[in-house]
Design a protein around this nucleic acid. Structure first.
Length: 637
DNA sequence: GTAGGGTTAG
């Protein structure tokens, strides 16, 4: 009995053993495919490639699929090329799926030419292969080819999906692309993808970048689902179009509704706050960001430098800059531009020397713009000209472009070398732009050079007749020479050309609230008080020697009316409001969307002197720090 | 397998 039992047990055991050993043999000598899979998932891509070389004919679909997948994940170009070569050598004809994988690999590794080769050789294509190829061009910044392929795709009868639409829309940004963009939008509606989050965020971004901010908002509002990216795209869209208040307002609302934010959201928000020069709110956001410990912090720090600089606080901007463990060219540029806009030429040069000495980051086109305009704003014309010569000699491996030439015109003009500036324009390798003539015209006004000014003004009015600012400066110039007949002619010309002027707007931040004033504004809650104050100021300032500069008004009205118009300028309203609402000695921080006019600049200087207030005025171009009747711009802007 | 938003200058 015992014997029998033992026997049964033995049989059972040996049966079990044989099964076990079978399993074991499978583990020790697994099929080729699972071996590859195991190697790839262990990260041993090179070992897998060796296996491919040895057991080549075993590869087939699964093998190639496994190994290519790993190559794509790792963006391993050379390894992927070996797989591709192997296919060719073993005369393996890959199906669409594998060819698409190869295409994606090349595209992700920035080898568009190879990707296109694979694409062109495909006997048939599906929506994924088309989309992957379009994506390659779109991300490489070749929007025309992306659009071209998209059209070919439609012609071939392949139906686009949500991936295709989300991919193609970013290629519809410039004027040419936008025409396609509109048509693609109607296609999207036909395919019922218009409320899809990914498609929607691309779509609203396209409209925003084309300046159609209301259309962008319509798309945003129609989304059935929202996420960080779509919300950020809308906030960024507002900020890019200069609708800064809308950007901040939307951020606040979405935050209340529980939106998530990431570093892109904050970067866009900070751009909007920079535009508004809302220092208090900017500081608050800075603190908020510090608490979040977000990745890609360098982008945010760059935005922060820019925000503090544009809000007039260079100390904080520099503090952020100094604390950075690593900097990009944008960090340097933001700081340089900051110093430049404040007219701190020596700080600009100091920082630029530091950048060159460190040598980790190479200066780019923007760096030189900042340095040259910094020299200009800081009254260091000759140093600026020397740096330009170094550029021409390619000291930093960088050739000047038209904007740098424009800076030189500005440098020469500022130092009064107007004839030389004219000659320089004549000899430069570019056709002068309106901006270049405009800066020279400004110089002619400051140096009261009517001869050069008249010539420059005529050039300018020819290429940019619609810009009201040009007429104002030329009129200032004629008025200063007492040539009233010309002033009148200019006014007629301006009427004829139906010049439109962006409405002037000034604002100041008080307890995290922005108070905005428009020219002759009647909308502010304290409007009556503010207007009374302006009148009162005019009387006091006149006693101290202020004389309204009536040539700043181009309307054909009585002198008395002109003075009234001048007193209605938005920056005067903001200054009066500042005096009314802040205690004695508090500095006044005023922002203006356009360039400040000569009369308002003068007005602000008198205020600083008579009321003992520091006035910091940020206009479209730069900061004016006015103290005791003297401005940091040296009356040149 | 393929997809969307961002920082400096003008």
């Amino acid at each position: 009995m015992l014997e029998k039992l033992k026997q049964t047990a033995f049989i059972a055991l040996s049966f079990k053993n044989s099964s076990f050993s079978r399993q074991l043999s499978q583990l020790t000598f697994p099929p080729f495919q699972s071996k590859l899979k195991a190697l790839c998932s262990n990260g041993q891509l090179h070992q897998a490639l060796l296996e491919m070389a040895v057991e080549g004919l075993e590869m087939k679909f699964e093998g190639y699929d496994t190994i290519l997948n790993e190559c794509v994940n790792r963006k391993a170009l050379r390894e992927g090329q070996r797989v591709h070569t192997h296919m060719i050598k073993t005369q393996y004809l890959p199906p669409v799926y594998l060819r698409t994988r190869l295409l994606i690999l090349y595209s992700k590794c920035d080898c568009l030419v190879d990707a296109r080769y694979v694409f062109d050789e495909m006997p048939e294509r599906n929506v994924v292969s088309w989309t992957a190829m379009i994506s390659g061009y779109s991300q490489k910044g070749v929007p025309l080819e992306a659009l071209n392929l998209f059209v070919q795709m439609l012609r071939s009868g392949t139906e686009p999906n949500e991936f295709t639409f989300a991919t193609i829309l970013p290629s519809c940004t410039d004027d040419y692309g936008f025409n396609y963009g509109r048509q693609i939008h109607s296609l999207i509606i036909r395919y019922n993808y218009d409320s899809h989050v990914f498609v929607g965020s691309s779509l609203l971004d396209m409209y925003a970048k084309a300046g159609k901010i209301h259309e962008a908002r319509t798309v945003f509002d129609s989304l059935t689902q929202r996420d960080v990216v779509s919300c950020t795209a809308m906030i960024a869209g507002y900020a890019q179009q200069g609708c800064d208040e809308e950007a901040v307002e939307l951020f606040r609302r979405l935050l209340k509704e529980g939106m998530n934010s990431n570093y892109v959201t904050y970067a866009s928000l900070l751009t909007a706050l920079s535009g508004l020069a809302a220092l208090d709110q900017g500081k608050q956001v800075h603190n908020h960001i510090l608490r979040q410990e977000l990745p890609s912090y360098v982008v945010l720090q760059n935005s922060m430098i820019d925000m503090y600089a544009k809000c007039g606080n260079l100390i904080y901007a520099r503090r952020v800059f100094d604390s950075m463990p690593e900097r990009t060219v944008i960090s340097w540029n933001a700081m340089l531009v900051g110093y430049s806009k404040h007219g701190m030429g020596s700080k600009v040069l100091e920082l630029f020397q530091m950048m060159r000495a460190e040598g980790y980051v190479k200066p780019d086109s923007v760096t030189f713009l900042a340095v040259l305009s910094g020299c200009s704003h800081g009254g260091m014309e000759d140093t600026g000209l020397e740096i330009f010569d170094e550029m021409v000699a390619e000291k930093d491996g960088f050739q000047p472009n038209i904007e740098h030439y424009g800076c030189v015109v500005d440098l020469l003009g500022r130092s009064g070398r107007l004839e030389k500036a004219l000659k320089f324009i004549d000899e430069m390798p570019y056709k002068p732009t309106a901006a270049i003539w405009g800066s020279l015209l400004g110089a002619c006004r400051v140096h009261s050079n009517i001869d050069v000014g008249e010539y420059v003004g005529r050039q300018l009015l020819e290429i940019e007749p619609e810009n009201a600012g040009n007429y104002v400066i030329l009129s200032n110039l004629y008025a200063s020479a007492g040539r009233w007949e010309e002033v009148r002619n200019l006014r007629e010309l301006m009427k004829e050309k139906a010049v439109t002027k962006e409405p002037g707007r000034s604002w100041m931040e008080l307890d995290q609230t922005l108070h905005t004033f428009h020219a002759s504004d009647r909308s502010h809650p304290r409007k009556d008080e503010v207007h009374m104050k302006v009148k009162e100021l005019a009387v006091r300032l006149k006693e101290a020697g202020y004389e309204p500069d009536l040539s700043c008004v181009l309307y054909d009205v009585e002198e008395e009316q002109k003075e009234k118009i001048l007193l209605g300028h938005s920056e005067k309203l903001a200054l009066a409001f500042g005096l009314l609402s802040t205690s004695e000695g508090t500095p006044l921080r005023v922002m203006k969307n356009l360039r400040i006019c000569v009369d308002c600049h003068n007005f602000a200087k008198f205020i600083s002197k008579l009321y003992g207030r520091k006035v910091s005025l940020r206009d479209k171009n730069r900061f004016h720090h006015i103290k005791g009747g003297v401005c940091s711009c040296g009356d040149y802007w």
